[in-house]
């Protein structure tokens, strides 16, 4: 029964969502809405599950004095401080205010600590794009050479410098037009093919799950 009940729920939920897409009629629409509410409730409780796991893993590292116990300490302190400030701001402002309101301490934490940290991580992408491009554009084989040539024209077409270099010879912006052609035709064709494959893959995968053939996600063999 440990496997059968989740399988039955999966099948029913999957069928209800699929049918309600084509049949907008009672009871499918109502059932879809109920399942949606269930998902929200389960996810809300699962957040605590995750938070408790994070605290447990971090405390264990501190207790066992592991190499990176220092970072675990920072996690615990940050978690408790953020939680504490959030609760304080939420309760002290009365019923009309929220801990997310502009000007609260929680808002300050968000704007001046969380956002810069996030931006820092995101900024690393610029350096990684450079190193990944270097590897991808090395003309090791035919495909990589093709990529290099396409990349050269697309990048060249995106900046005015290349068209400007052609200005003494012609007024036609060949670089930007060729870049536009690459983006509009070969790229769109390739992307569409991938999208069709993905849609069919999702369909086939969903069918396997709904029919109970695929069970790995519920711990089935």
């Amino acid at each position: 029964m440990r496997r059968e009940i989740p399988l039955i729920i999966t099948t029913i939920a999957g069928l209800v969502f699929a049918i309600s897409y084509f049949i907008p009629h009672w009871p499918f629409v109502e059932a879809e809405s109920i399942f949606g509410d269930w998902i929200a409730i389960v996810q809300a409780f699962a957040i605590w599950l995750g938070a408790l796991n994070l605290i447990k893993v971090s405390l264990e590292k501190i207790y066992r004095k592991k190499e990176d116990a220092f970072y675990s300490g920072i996690i615990i302190v940050c978690l408790l401080v953020t939680l504490g400030i959030g609760f304080y701001d939420g309760f002290s402002g009365g019923a009309q205010s929220s801990f997310r309101d502009t000007g609260t301490t929680f808002d300050w934490l968000y704007r001046f600590i969380y956002t810069p940290l996030t931006s820092t991580m995101f900024a690393m992408l610029a350096f990684f794009v450079a190193s990944a491009s270097y590897r991808a554009f090395r003309a090791r084989n035919f495909e990589a050479t093709l990529l290099l040539i396409a990349g050269f024209f697309v990048m060249g077409g995106r900046v005015p410098l290349f068209d400007l270099a052609l200005k003494p010879f012609t007024d036609v912006p060949y670089f930007s037009e060729f870049a536009g052609w690459i983006m509009a035709y070969p790229l769109t064709a390739g992307m569409t093919a991938i999208m069709i494959g993905i849609a069919l893959g999702i369909m086939s995968s969903s069918l396997r799950i709904i029919l109970g053939i695929e069970r790995s996600h519920i711990g089935g063999a």
């Binding site: 993905i198 893959g201 999702i202 086939s204 995968s205």
Partner: peptide, 9 residues
Amino acid sequence: IGEELFAAS
């Protein structure tokens, strides 16, 4: 690539 992810299992 795309569909291969769903075909993997």
